[in-house]
Each structure stands twice: as structure tokens, then as C-alpha cells.
Amino acid sequence: MNLCIDSDCCTGCGACVEHCPGHVLSMGSENRPCEKYPDDCWYCGVCAIECPAECITVIFPYLIR
């Protein structure tokens, strides 16, 4: 996993899913985003910047931490 998404503050707006340039994210159950293709992430932070509720933090996968 590359991201920490605070599902309490998430409004389900889908901006992160739409803007992720690598199609990593998808809307999952209960209208919350999930990392559908985590291997395709570049840790670019676009999702975090586009999130109006500021509930995404890029935490990096284990080998990069």
C-alpha cells in the first residue's frame, strides 16, 4: 500500500480516482477510494493534492520507507 486514506473525512467525491495519472485508484465499497492497482503507483502525490478534504497521505510502500 502506498497511501493512507482517512475514510472518516473522505466525502467520496472521486477526485483522487479521476486525477491519478496511473489509474491506480478505483471507487470501492461504500463509495470510498481504494488502491486497485497499487503496483502502478509513482508516489507522485497528485491524489493527495487533488483531495478537497485533505484526507490522503502518501506513505510509500515498504521498500521505499
Binding site: 503496483d39 502502478d40 521498500l63 521505499i64
Partner: peptide
């Protein structure tokens, strides 16, 4: 060396 296929310098897509 990041160990990830998309963990590249250049834009991986």
C-alpha cells in the same frame, strides 16, 4: 533499485 516496477525516475506510464 527501488524494487518496484513503477518506482522509476522517468514517468512510468
Amino acid at each position: 533499485s527501488t524494487g518496484y516496477l513503477h518506482g522509476t525516475f522517468d514517468c512510468p506510464w
